[in-house]
Design a protein around this nucleic acid. Structure first.
Lengths: 165, 165
DNA sequence: TGTTACATTTAGTACATACTGAACGTACTG
DNA sequence: CAGTACGTTCAGTATGTACTAAATGTAACA
């Protein structure tokens, strides 16, 4: 059990900003706060530490820390003689960012990748329809597919992987 | 004035998906819906068209279409003999995506770029503090700054610009 | 210059969702 | 096998925000 220590105001400021950042990016505020808290902690932390440090509920800390763990942003460490789960931050930002992007964008985009094929199959029914001509729509869909192909696998691009490393 | 035409169900499906996509990415649903609507319309559209086609309020259409205009996703076109503002979609996705990313991420990140310098200046006050040692925190901040430098200007990277084009 | 026909703005509302707190499940300990 | 000490789950809530609708601003026409 760690003593109830107060967090340095500078790091506190950092925690707030990290929370605002993840908040504005659509993940909860707590995710960023927790990562910053652990990133600037030289010792592993458990759920009670997080709850006390951030003033959040234990359930919320549990959910957020598992999100971070899924992205490889934190990892569980074993503290012998203690039954609690302890976590510490990883500092391999490239991998964290990639995991988060793949996890978030990939899941969201996968629902839409098939749509272009569907709409292309049904394109024949658009011929002669009142709303726009079929040739116009075909061209638009071709542009879309072309762009989709260019962006597909962008994270696997070796140059991108070099930058996001 | 265009006749009150019904939208093809396939395109309607596309509009819905585009709305869900922009919604899940943190921009409103209407932004994606409006862009898809105009992207598959061979003629320019005005606010009343959008309101009728999507069943949204005129004010909402006004806000969303200006967002799209700011990203270069749509452009205003002049229809002579008509005082309304007409818009049509652009199909240069790379530019649109880049503008949206710069506009969104850039604005959000700019608040935090100075924080690392601030915290580094104040790092001396951390020496000997109870919560972690200064050397540890210095190393963490160095890692952060290194990663920040790598990602800074990533959109200006010529290889990225080639892909997002 | 008054009137009209638009776009824009904004106060209010409805909805989504992140968080709380308690109940639950589970695995060590004695 | 109790009893305890955790982590997890979930119904309820509170906060933020996208959208509505009405008021306001603005520019073209008479």
């Amino acid at each position: 059990m760690t003593s109830p220590e107060s967090i340095n105001p500078i790091i506190q400021h950092f925690i707030e900003d990290a929370g605002n950042m993840t908040q504005s990016f659509g993940f909860g505020r707590v995710v960023g706060q927790l990562f910053a808290y652990m990133y600037f902690s030289s010792i592993p932390r458990n759920l009670a530490d997080m709850r006390d440090a951030l003033g959040i509920s234990k359930g919320c800390a549990s959910t957020a820390v598992r999100q971070l763990e899924q992205w490889g942003a934190v990892k569980k460490v074993w503290v012998k003689g203690d039954r609690k789960d302890y976590y510490e931050a990883c500092d391999w930002f490239g991998r964290i960012l990639k995991n988060a992007i793949v996890d978030t964008f990939g899941k969201r985009m996968s629902s839409y990748t098939s749509l272009l094929d569907e709409i292309e199959d049904d394109l024949v029914t658009l011929e002669g329809h009142g709303d726009g001509d079929g040739a116009f729509i075909r061209q638009r869909i071709d542009n879309l597919k072309q762009f989709q192909q260019k962006t597909r696998g962008i994270l696997e691009n070796p140059i991108i992987r070099e930058i996001i490393k």
